[in-house]
Amino acid sequence: MTTDGPKLNLGSKVATYVVLTLLCLPALLPLVWMISTSLKGDTQIYNATDHGLSLSTLVPSPLHPENYPDALNTLPFLVYLRNTLFLCICTVLGAVVSSAVVAYGFAKVNFTGKNTLFMLMIATMALPGQVTMIPVFSLYRSLGWYGTYLPIIVPAFTASAYYVFLMTQFFRTIPNEMSEAARVDGAGEWTIFTRLILPLSKPALATCALFQFIGTWNDFLGPLLYINDPAKYPLAYGLQQFVTLYGGKHAQLMAASTIFTIPIIILFFFAQKTFIQGISTTGGK
């Protein structure tokens, strides 16, 4: 049984709506301000020296949609977008496949040292990245990977502790009787994994794919350390470069930020359920 919170009388209901609506303002205003600035002309941005607030502060009139092509011409954001998508596809594929394989090992196969290794894997999640950052950098450098996408893509294929944890939890809820029956029929572990467990685990796989996609989309430190060729920048790094180089072009900067943010928001709306379920199963259980 779960709770849905207390039932309320009319007065408390109205009060609840008022408080929630007031709180929505700080939650939404930064995003509204971003989009509204991205559609303003210079005079609309700077001639606000009376510091007043009016409807036109948030809803510019006339609109200046040409800021978007302007932004794309200032820095090649479409190239950055392509780079980001490429990185997202590679890392999603790598992380989901490898984490599922590893999770099956931890959830369904009994081998010596399993529990110790599982605990060790969980512990690595608390290890600050700064500790391993420098030796890992010099390792990739000596492999000749500096300046390529390999330092971002290859580690994704070695499974992520977080996703392995999520998937292990999920695989454990699948009853062992089914795999036992398949084993009696002579199926090997790999067959059971690919034919039986994976098709039943689509929600967990989708959650991890989504998290990884967003993680790579947002990743800033990876490209900052390893990508030195502007033609290879992903969006997150490109946007930071925009601030450094053209920080004064407010409208174009906000247009670029909007281009970077909107796809993630759209993705969220389409996959809201997968999202919330995934996060909810993480918390302290």
Partner: peptide, 28 residues
Amino acid sequence: TIFYLPSIVPTVATSVVFMWLLNPNIGL
């Protein structure tokens, strides 16, 4: 959904938008 939304905005975008929000003269 509205209160969750800000947490999925990419960190670099959040930072850039806040720099502009907090502009001393013409920030919101």
